[in-house]
Simulated assay, not measured.
Amino acid sequence: MNTTHPDWPSSLSDAELDELDKYLRARANDGDLLLDGVHGMLSALAVGPLQVLPDEWLPEVLHEPFTDEDEGNRVLALLAKLNDSIVAELEVDAYEPILGEIDTETGPMLSAAGWCEGFSRAIDLRAMLWEKRLADDTQLMEMLGPVMALAVDEGILNAETEFEKLTDEEYDECLAQVPAVLATVSNYWHEHPVTEEELKALAEDGGKAPETEAVHPPRFRSGHWLH
């Protein structure tokens, strides 16, 4: 599992990453995001077209109310810190995705499946904006090429045409390009911001994903969780 740079105050330590990982694993059902998935989701949100507040993305992570207030505050603080660390890494070109591990005949191997799943769910939160731009601008599609190749290879996305599995070398090469992809996509949205027409269409579409009744999280403002 990759970790963030220890010199940044907002970065999670190895112990904190393990703590959050254990919390998520202990409560995960089939299809729920684990730490790698949460990292992928927050990474996509950090470079996306519009801000997505925690009351939209937390239901993708937390699926039941906290039974212990102290534990709940601790988990929310760790998630906020993880989100901050992603932004910090992207700003100094030191981003690395947190990846999961799978067991193979030759031993454990890193897998981008969970990270890609989280990335995909983040795009779904602003699906209308992403889908329209991807359809209208082949440049954005090309930028996302390595991430999309990983997602198709892992079965997260369905390819419209027959897709040959990546070789180990190709897989590693796509993984190595992920930080550059995020930086490029972030620059793209800064240089080609959402238009008034797109905002109007988004508002007509409801503005965000359907709300869930499973959790009612606090909002996040400037590094702090507010109730």
Rank of each mutant, 00 (worst) to 15 (best):
M1A: 13
T3P: 04
T3K: 05
T3N: 05
H5N: 10
H5M: 05
H5T: 08
P6E: 08
P9R: 05
S10E: 04
S11R: 03
L12Y: 02
L12P: 07
D14K: 09
A15P: 12
E16D: 06
L17I: 02
D18T: 13
D18K: 08
E19S: 11
E19N: 08
L20M: 00
D21P: 11
L24N: 04
R27A: 04
N29G: 10
D30A: 14
D30I: 14
G31L: 07
D32F: 09
D32H: 10
L34I: 10
L34M: 09
V38I: 08
G40P: 00
L42S: 02
S43D: 01
A46P: 01
P49F: 04
V52S: 07
V52E: 06
D55G: 01
E56G: 03
E56Y: 10
E60N: 06
E60C: 09
E60I: 06
L62G: 01
H63K: 05
H63Y: 02
E71C: 07
G72Y: 00
N73V: 03
V75E: 02
L76W: 01
L76C: 01
L79T: 02
A80E: 00
A80I: 01
D84N: 07
A88V: 07
V92F: 01
V92K: 05
A94N: 05
A94P: 02
Y95L: 07
Y95E: 00
Y95M: 05
E96A: 10
E96T: 08
I98L: 11
G100N: 08
I102C: 07
T104W: 10
E105I: 15
M109Y: 05
M109V: 15
L110C: 02
L110K: 13
G114Q: 14
W115G: 01
E117N: 10
R121H: 11
L125C: 11
L125H: 13
R126Y: 08
A127I: 11
M128S: 15
L129D: 08
W130A: 12
E131N: 15
A135T: 14
D136M: 09
D136L: 09
Q139K: 12
Q139H: 10
E142H: 10
M143N: 12
L144T: 07
L144A: 09
G145I: 03
G145A: 06
P146T: 03
P146L: 02
M148F: 15
A149I: 04
D153E: 05
E154Q: 11
I156N: 02
I156G: 02
N158K: 14
A159V: 07
E160M: 14
E160W: 12
E160F: 13
F163Q: 05
E164A: 08
K165L: 15
C174N: 09
C174W: 05
A176Q: 06
V178C: 00
P179I: 01
A180E: 10
V181D: 06
V181G: 06
T184F: 01
S186L: 07
N187Q: 14
N187R: 13
H190C: 11
H190S: 13
H190G: 08
E191G: 12
T195P: 03
L199A: 07
L199H: 08
K200W: 12
E204I: 15
K208M: 13
K208Y: 12
E213D: 15
E213Q: 11
A214H: 04
V215H: 01
H216L: 11
P217R: 06
P217F: 00
R219P: 00
R219M: 05
H224T: 04
L226R: 08
H227L: 10
